[in-house]
Amino acid sequence: GSLPKPSLTVWPSSVLSAQSNVTLRCWTPEMGVDFILRQGETNLSVLQSRESTEGLAEFHLNDLKGSQAGEYTCEYYRKGSPDISSQRSDVLLLLVTGYLPKPSLKIHQNHKVSARGNLTFQCQKLDPLVQPVMFALLKAGTSNPLQLRGPEENGVEFSLQNLTVGDTGSYSCVYYQSSPPFLASQPSNHLEIWVTVLAHLSSSDYTTGNLIRLGLAALIMVTMGAFLVEAWHSQKESPNTS
């Protein structure tokens, strides 16, 4: 039988420009195993496990080239008679940008939107290629595309629902070939989006607020009354100077 599949993750991002550096991390809870990284069906690297790795292998791809774009998987195996291999990880698509003209990215709303609202991006391909391509919505600081759409010839729309403050950030999009050689465009210009929180008071909030205001008003009236009574007593006890 085979061992459970590992997870394959990427840092800093699965969409990078040429000449960037990237690290692919293959992880499993199993101990004392060796790892294999594949691009498609080609074995790229075999990493011997060490006690310090504890089921984690890091494969470093430096000075990225367009030929390194593609679908990556990893697996691990335990040496024995015979060796026992794991299932392959889920596919991780690595894109190297800059080989096709950049698309445009637009929104129809204001760049400042309210929390719990929706936001629609339109990513449009501007070059004359008629071959259907895939589109990816990117956010700065995230390691993988937020959404994928396609294949389409000219453009797609991406929709973000029920926005939160965490959706604030810088967005861009790319398009790419969905089969080898996986050529990808330059990223679009970035759009800065701000998600703001508006105070929405319910009826219970209004009731609570009214009670607080009434309580403060009563406290002020009592305090003023106490001052008036004290002033009256002071005037009554003072000697008549007339």
Rank of each mutant, 00 (worst) to 15 (best):
residue 190 H to P: 00
residue 226 A to N: 03
residue 101 P to D: 08
residue 203 S to G: 01
residue 117 G to N: 05
residue 187 P to M: 11
residue 103 P to E: 11
residue 164 T to C: 05
residue 161 Q to F: 15
residue 163 L to N: 07
residue 217 A to C: 02
residue 116 R to W: 02
residue 166 G to D: 12
residue 111 H to R: 11
residue 219 L to I: 12
residue 125 K to S: 01
residue 181 P to S: 15
residue 183 L to M: 13
residue 234 S to C: 10
residue 162 N to E: 15
residue 141 G to L: 02
residue 132 P to W: 01
residue 151 P to T: 05
residue 172 S to N: 14
residue 199 A to T: 13
residue 219 L to W: 09
residue 233 H to L: 07
residue 102 K to L: 06
residue 125 K to E: 00
residue 217 A to E: 04
residue 153 E to C: 05
residue 191 L to T: 10
residue 136 A to S: 11
residue 154 N to H: 09
residue 218 A to I: 00
residue 130 V to I: 10
residue 226 A to V: 07
residue 166 G to S: 09
residue 116 R to N: 06
residue 205 D to I: 02
residue 165 V to A: 15
residue 102 K to G: 03
residue 213 R to Q: 05
residue 135 F to W: 08
residue 146 L to I: 15
residue 234 S to T: 12
residue 191 L to S: 09
residue 188 S to I: 04
residue 163 L to H: 04
residue 219 L to Q: 12
residue 160 L to K: 08
residue 195 V to L: 06
residue 197 V to A: 03
residue 187 P to V: 13
residue 188 S to K: 01
residue 188 S to M: 03
residue 185 S to T: 13
residue 154 N to G: 03
residue 197 V to L: 06
residue 104 S to H: 06
residue 208 T to P: 00
residue 206 Y to G: 04
residue 167 D to H: 13
residue 230 E to I: 14
residue 183 L to T: 09
residue 131 Q to T: 14
residue 172 S to D: 13
residue 207 T to C: 11
residue 214 L to C: 10
residue 138 L to S: 08
residue 128 P to W: 04
residue 110 N to P: 02
residue 149 R to A: 15
residue 208 T to E: 04
residue 103 P to M: 08
residue 176 Y to L: 13
residue 180 P to M: 06
residue 196 T to A: 00
residue 134 M to H: 08
residue 158 F to N: 02
residue 214 L to K: 14
residue 150 G to I: 07
residue 220 I to E: 07
residue 179 S to I: 05
residue 162 N to M: 14
residue 215 G to P: 00
residue 127 D to T: 06
residue 156 V to R: 10
residue 228 L to W: 09
residue 157 E to R: 12
residue 222 V to N: 05
residue 133 V to Y: 06
residue 101 P to Q: 11
